[in-house]
Design a protein around this nucleic acid. Structure first.
Lengths: 211, 211
DNA sequence: ATAGTAAACGAACGGTCGTTCGTATGATAA
DNA sequence: TTATCATACGAACGACCGTTCGTTTACTAT
């Protein structure tokens, strides 16, 4: 079945519409008929491209998690100071979450809709990402650059703070993307006790690319 | 129908079990049969206590939002400095969210499952709560106590950071509640440019009471 | 031209959904 | 004792669910 190939246009269309619908209404509240209708197909035709409803969700979640980790690794370098790494991480994380809010929302909410084995694999990817920030925070604390009460708690606090951008950011809103990113970089740095006045604008923003 | 009174024990049981199920699986993924079974009733008997599935959700969400605002107002005083208000807000917010994670999770996820009128009323309550923190941040910036790039963005950043505690906190975990709260107070203060070493432990924690 | 195949269709499957209805029970109040 | 009423039951309603099936369509390679 050639249709299983990612480049298949109908298959991509189905994935994109499923992503939007799952993000809007939640996995359980979206039917195969809803997905089919939104791309102009009969519900049965979806099964030429996917084995089941759950397999659509799995592919969306796995694609998001793999892309997130890969982009992060492309973006960050571990050969600079913890402060510079934190700035780069924050810029990347906020930019990515502004660009792909639906993926983020589905990943946050619908992990529980997965069967245990699939869920475990994705939780591992999520933990890998979180631990990559925790390593930066730990490095900064050890080097005396950062101040915090507990590294693990503070890491989760920063990730939650940054991820929250998906809830309110609108492209036609009051602030442009760079200003928003600048705000979050300042907040993240300061939260670890770094005065952010001087460093925040030194780093140019590269473009996040979704694979 | 006396059963509509909140003190009715069966009705309270239904509300509590519905809350847990909605938080675990999501509103759409929970059936009236699931709720009935979990309290040992037939599905039809629920309609002696609630008009519809949606009305159960409304009551859970409204109860949460009203309680949250009321407790906040009981807890906070506006006759102290912005820094002290921020400490009190953070202590309250984290303590409340640790104690009632199911309510918080449902409120975050299931507003969209409501009909427009009901949703608007609850969004207003949520905005009221958020604006109460924004007022504190604005006051601190004006007084020169706080430093941030944008008051609205930073307010949302702090709320997201604090609310994230619900995702990972466990009562039998590595850290006790007070330590967790202390971590978040430090993070919130420092994020606004306040050195947190000296102030974090001055304020005793009062007990959050759910009405 | 013809055989093979990916992909679409539309009907149908058994099951579950939220909700309604008529009835039975058991406590309370007259 | 009797009338009332909140509450429980169990069957049933029409609608929708995810998925399967047999068939048709349309392109591709021989």
């Amino acid at each position: 079945m050639d249709s299983k190939h990612p480049r298949n246009p109908t298959r991509s269309l189905l994935l994109n519409h499923a992503r939007r619908l799952f993000a809007e209404r939640g996995f359980s509240a979206v039917s195969m008929r809803d997905i089919a209708r939104s791309v102009g197909l009969q519900q049965s035709s979806i099964y030429n491209h996917f084995d089941s409803k759950q397999s659509i969700l799995i592919e969306l979640l796995r694609g998001h998690m793999l892309t997130l980790n890969q982009c992060r690794n492309d973006w960050l370098s571990d050969e600079v100071s913890a402060t510079e790494q934190l700035i780069a991480f924050t810029q990347f994380h906020v930019a990515y979450h502004i660009d792909f809010p639906d993926d983020v929302f589905i990943a946050y909410m619908e992990l529980r809709s997965l069967e245990p084995d699939n869920r475990k694999a994705l939780v591992r990817l999520r933990d890998e990402y979180e631990l990559s920030l925790q390593a930066i925070v730990q490095q900064g604390v050890t080097a005396g650059e950062f101040q915090c009460v507990d590294v693990a708690v503070h890491t989760r606090a920063i990730i939650a703070m940054l991820t929250g951008v998906t809830v309110w950011y609108r492209h036609d809103g009051r602030l442009d993307k760079d200003t928003v990113i600048h705000s979050y970089v300042t907040a993240a740095l300061q939260s670890l006790g770094i005065p952010a006045n001087d460093v925040a604008h030194q780093h140019e923003l590269k473009k996040v690319k979704h694979v």
